[in-house]
Amino acid sequence: MSELVGWADDYFWGAMVVLRVFAVSLVLAVVIGLIGSAMKLSGSRVAQTIANAYTVVFRGTPELLVLLIVYFGAAVTLTAIGQSFDASVKFIDIPPFWAGAFAIALIVGAYMTETFRGAFLGVDPGHVEAARALGLSKFQTFVYVRIPQMWRLALPNFGNHMLSLMKDTALISVIGVEEIVFVAKIATPVTLKPFTMYFIVALIYLCITTVITLAVMAMEKYANKHLVSSR
């Protein structure tokens, strides 16, 4: 047991890395989702086609593959660009942390696009009309009427996307990010207890996903507090 305690530190810092990737990806994914849904709802043929292609590609491709394409592809591209400027350049790559965060954001962003699109469509047009009739500007209507309603509708699915995102972060171990799966990997030959090491990884993920689930439930309660529940 004592040798396991020695690894507690590494697990902790690994978990911090996981949470950082989660946070960065989440923000990026939401931004991508809002832009994507705006494009799909925009009415512009071009925007819609691009957005549709985006969601089809990133929802139909395995997450691992996206990660590998982004990471290795970026390295190849950057190296090629670097070599065109300076022939002595051997290898440029982007830090796997950023490649991973970006790749995950692209994947989950595609799902968020669909969720936000559906949620925006679900906002009662009558409410929007009423707001405009009262004199609110397009922007004010968007901020004070559309977004709060859309948010309430999007919440359940948004919660699921957050959970997927969280679990996708495990993949970054494949491209070498030193997070908790990595810790288990290097700890195994030392402790000779692979089950324990990986089980701890699973446990850490379970704790984080539980916290997220509880947070989403609380948010749903808050978002729906103005609705009267029927018997």
Partner: peptide, 14 residues
């Protein structure tokens, strides 16, 4: 609540 990758690793390595 846990990533599939971790589930695979627990079974295969663990």
């Amino acid at each position: 609540g846990t990533p599939i990758l971790v589930q695979i690793f627990v079974i295969y390595f663990g």
